[in-house]
Simulated scan of single mutants.
Amino acid sequence: MAFRAAVITFPGSNCDRDMAVALESVSGEAAIRVWHGDADLPDQLDLIALPGGFSYGDYLRSGAMAAKSPVLRAVVAAAERGVPVLGVCNGFQVLTESGLLPGALMRNAGQRFVCKTVELEVANTTSPFTSGFAAGERLRVPVAHHDGNYFADEATLDALEAENRIAFRYCDNPNGSRRDIAGVLSANGRVLGMMPHPERAMEPAAHASLGGADGRKIFENVIASLVDA
């Protein structure tokens, strides 16, 4: 079964190629590249990925202008049909601005850009992105953001907890995110937004601090979920 994934590129995206390479590395199929001005998406997609970067220069708010782009209407419609959507870093910001995920990404608590590898704890094991993990499993994945401080009101946070919609938590919170949240799922579990970059953790390296393959399993999980469906 051929795996059909689309990677959306906005003006200012800088991780779209990384995302496409990661998807092809795992699936063996080249990702379809989609421009932000396109009104339609390719048919029969298995995954839509919104990559990191600085869409539209982060004017207004990070992700706010991208959320109004023509292609996002098609992304929202696809998500409502159940197509899995992954938003990483700026892609996570776009997902919150578009209403596909609750909350907002604010300036880091220290008001500084954070760029380092962080440790994550798996909090959900039932979504297409996380079903191959064990509860409490630890991952090492890079972050690179200035506006990664996840915020939602207490009622929303309580609902996310109760509905098992927190995908990943920071073990050592680098940005001040409420309840150490690093990744959030939609109500049906098929939309994931996360600030860390799994597409940058695809291959082991000779020195542990320079590489790792912990992010690869997130992509493997999505493909496995299609086979099991």
Rank of each mutant, 00 (worst) to 15 (best):
R200E: 05
A187Q: 15
I181A: 12
D172T: 14
F168V: 01
S177F: 01
N188C: 14
P196N: 12
L192Y: 04
A182K: 08
R169H: 15
L185E: 06
V184D: 05
M194Y: 03
V184Y: 00
V191C: 07
G189A: 08
P174K: 07
V191A: 08
R178V: 14
R190I: 00
S177M: 07
A182N: 08
R190N: 12
S186Q: 03
C171H: 06
G189S: 07
P174C: 11
N173C: 10
D172P: 06
D180P: 09
L192V: 01
P198C: 13
G176H: 09
E199P: 07
R169C: 14
L185W: 00
I181N: 08
N175Y: 09
N175F: 05
D180M: 07
R190G: 06
A182Y: 07
V184N: 04
G193W: 00
I181Y: 06
G176V: 11
H197N: 12
S177H: 06
N188E: 14
G193N: 01
N173V: 06
N173L: 06
G183K: 05
M195W: 07
N188F: 03
S177Q: 06
R190P: 07
L185R: 00
G176C: 10
G193F: 04
V184W: 05
M195N: 07
L185K: 02
S186M: 00
G193Y: 00
F168E: 02
